[in-house]
Amino acid sequence: MNANVLPSKPHYQILDGLRGVAALIVVTFHIFEAHATSHLTQIINHGYLAVDFFFLLSGYVISYAYDDRWQKMSIGNFFRRRLERLQPMVIMGMIIGAACFYFSDSPALFPNIHNVELWKVLLTMLVGFTLLPIPVSMDIRGWQELHPLDGPGWSLFYEYIANILYGLGIRRFSKGLLTALVVLSAAALMHYTITSASGDIIGGWSLTPEQIKIGFIRMMFPFFGGLLLARVTKPVHIKNAFLWASLLLAVVLFMPRIGGADHLWANGLYEALAIIFVFPLIVYLGAGGQTHSIKENKICKFLGDISYPIYITHYPFIYIYTGWAYDNRGASLSQAIGYGLLTFAVSVLVGYASLKLYDEPIRAWLKKKSLT
């Protein structure tokens, strides 16, 4: 049987909803981040941990969706299915990023962007379509990002690496071998967060040795921890799981900085414990829960549908908002709130429009092509 015609499995509706909750918190975190003077003064201080939650959720869902299909599915078909799911929105994110870059104006924060030739912007966009990382020498923004037009592309780069590792070999790991890998990855994660100079796990978005190390640390435990969680646990029904899991996720991500500048290790320990223990608990609760009304089901579906489009398209608007905040540091609170709410609304609307007008039609076309 051709793997491309394998029937889709039912979705974990609550896990879809939790992905959307995390995506909306990420947008809010990035808006507030524009006003932070340092990593110690962020308003939604641990919003960046949503990326680590996404990795763990992805590992869990990959195990559920594919572990029992390898007798009927080739590695090539697995990679094709993953590309069909993820790559269209990567391309859209880069297109939006290129347009926002070329037409943005922030002389204080990005003083050189109007000196960047159009061909360099287009080349960066085309490379971004492939998700191949941009070396620091080709950075056109000045933030040393893997993808200067759409910063969150870095996490998709590591998501693809995780999928490649899974498809090429780790899918065959026994529970014992996978447990050993996850335990070692957890130890590396905890060691880094506790001993890091910044006292957190922020990073992974630059093509430098230190940032590459952070990227792999952030990907290895959550993704393969999620894989292990799916293999060794059976979901247990939890009443009001979406509500409780959403609240717990929000508490983790909204938690203020711990320890301050004098005890950076304390914040690192908090982040390690959140990723290693609390995030798996949240996913476990979500996987065991069920929606109890048509309204709750629609909410979870809507949040799940828009989560990835919002995540991969919102950051070009964050560049613009951050530039405005930097250039207008004396602006009133009402102005900041107004522009912040506008940025949030635009991010959600563009994400939803991208989903309905581009992503769903493209994926439907690709699916149809794969069946012919």
Rank of each mutant, 00 (worst) to 15 (best):
206 S>Y: 08
59 G>I: 04
97 G>C: 02
20 G>A: 08
232 V>K: 03
256 P>W: 04
4 N>D: 14
117 E>K: 14
105 D>I: 06
157 F>R: 02
267 N>Q: 13
164 I>E: 09
197 A>E: 15
339 Y>G: 10
49 L>T: 00
298 K>D: 09
141 R>W: 02
370 S>G: 13
229 L>S: 00
284 Y>N: 11
82 R>Y: 03
283 V>W: 02
288 G>F: 01
93 G>M: 02
302 F>S: 05
322 T>R: 14
301 K>P: 00
109 L>E: 10
113 I>Y: 00
364 A>M: 08
125 M>S: 02
193 T>L: 14
213 K>W: 13
103 F>I: 05
127 V>F: 06
262 D>G: 08
267 N>M: 04
292 H>T: 13
86 L>C: 06
114 H>K: 15
37 T>R: 10
172 R>F: 07
263 H>F: 11
346 V>A: 08
255 M>L: 10
21 V>F: 05
142 G>V: 10
62 I>F: 03
287 A>R: 09
155 S>K: 02
182 V>G: 00
15 L>M: 06
105 D>F: 15
84 E>P: 00
103 F>N: 07
175 K>V: 14
17 G>F: 04
330 G>Q: 08
271 E>Y: 04
281 L>A: 08
19 R>G: 03
6 L>T: 10
29 F>T: 10
12 Y>D: 00
326 Y>P: 02
6 L>F: 11
366 L>S: 05
213 K>C: 12
57 L>V: 06
173 F>C: 13
296 E>D: 10
294 I>N: 12
94 M>V: 05
241 A>R: 13
